[in-house]
Amino acid sequence: MAQFGNYTLLIILGALFALPFIYTLYTSLITMQDVNKLAGVSNWTFDNYKMFFTNDAYNVPKWLMNTVIMTAVVILGNLIINPMVGFALAKLDFKGKKLIYWIVVGTMMVPYHMILIPVYVNVAELGWLNSFTGLTVPFLYQALYIFMMRQFFISIPTEFIEAARLDGLTKVGAFWRIVYPLARSSLITMSILAFSGTWNSYLIPVTLTSDPSMYVLVVGLNSVKDMFFENTPLIMAGVVLATLPILIFFFIFQRQYIEGVSSAGVKG
């Protein structure tokens, strides 16, 4: 009985949290005449989505491709750099290790808005404005994910690494062949967080790009919002386009995400 009550409560809460997206999806499938009305399925249409991909006033396919490229590069960089740094801070002994760790922890407490201007200045001086280099290179690692990976690697017995060394592997080889595969759940968790954060990123891309051909999806859709502010169904279709990939990505890897969060608790 208690289990039934728990499931019922979870279903109710899930439905409440899903209502905003359901409303957004519904509104994106109707016309302006049916806004704030309950339109039947026969009145639903995909014209709002078609307009995004066929109207020359905006280049959604290009913005979508820019977002895919930026997100893929950032995730790939984070999957390589953050685990390497986390492993070094967890398992290797070197001078300044604790200092570096506390610097990493300290940077987690600094809002990114405070360093956005220095980042812009550096990107501009390097000539990276309006380029994929500027949109990706400064974000190939994140302090939060370094901390998360360190916490996971601390839980791995050092005996695994020592056994790998006895078998002839170097420290680098032991990391890539033994330790890295064990971090699969944490890596997927990091990928989901990096995916959602990068895909939905607005402040950084809008600061580093002024050329419409280099807009990412969120920045481009925001310009559409300015042109068609009163066309609610069109705006909602843009919201669905920006949100749906994140939901799909999460639902595919939700089990690994939960396992990763559970295994990355604060230790050591």
Rank of each mutant, 00 (worst) to 15 (best):
G260S: 04
S196R: 09
W63A: 00
F153Y: 07
I161Q: 14
V119T: 14
K267L: 06
T133R: 04
M148K: 01
P118T: 04
Q3G: 11
Q142M: 09
R177I: 10
D93I: 14
V110I: 14
A242H: 09
G77T: 02
N78R: 12
D167V: 01
W102G: 10
G127S: 09
W44V: 11
T8P: 13
G238W: 04
S155C: 09
D93K: 15
S213Q: 08
V266Q: 14
Q3W: 15
I178N: 01
L116N: 02
I81W: 00
Y202N: 04
D167R: 04
L169Y: 15
G96Q: 08
N200A: 13
S28V: 01
I80V: 04
W102V: 14
S263R: 05
L241K: 09
T232Q: 13
L92N: 04
N43M: 15
V73E: 03
F21D: 05
L9N: 10
M108R: 11
V179R: 01
A183T: 04
T207E: 08
M51A: 07
A72H: 06
T27S: 15
L247F: 08
K267M: 07
Y26W: 10
W176I: 05
M190I: 13
T207R: 06
F4Y: 15
V261D: 14
Y141Q: 14
S191Y: 07
R177C: 12
N200L: 07
S263E: 04
L217S: 02
V224F: 00
G220E: 03
K62Y: 06
S213V: 13
D167Y: 02
M149E: 13
V35S: 03
V266P: 02
G268I: 06
I161C: 02
G86M: 01
K98R: 12
D56M: 10
V68W: 03
P138A: 08
A143G: 00
M51Y: 07
D93P: 09
V35Q: 12
L234F: 01
P245V: 08
A39Q: 08
L38T: 09
Y7C: 02
L16R: 04
T170V: 00
L76K: 05
T67R: 02
G5I: 13
I103E: 10
A174F: 05
I146N: 03
Y112P: 15
V137H: 09
T54G: 03
R150K: 04
P212A: 01
Y58I: 00
G268P: 03
Y145E: 08
D226R: 05
Y7H: 14
S131N: 04
F175V: 00
D47W: 12
M148A: 08
A57R: 11
T198W: 01
P20I: 00
V240C: 07
V266Y: 02
L29P: 10
L64S: 09
E125F: 15
G106F: 02
A72N: 06
A124D: 08
V68C: 10
P138F: 03
D47Y: 12
T8M: 14
M148Y: 01
A39C: 10
T133M: 05
L13A: 11
F132P: 01
I146V: 11
S155A: 05
M148L: 03
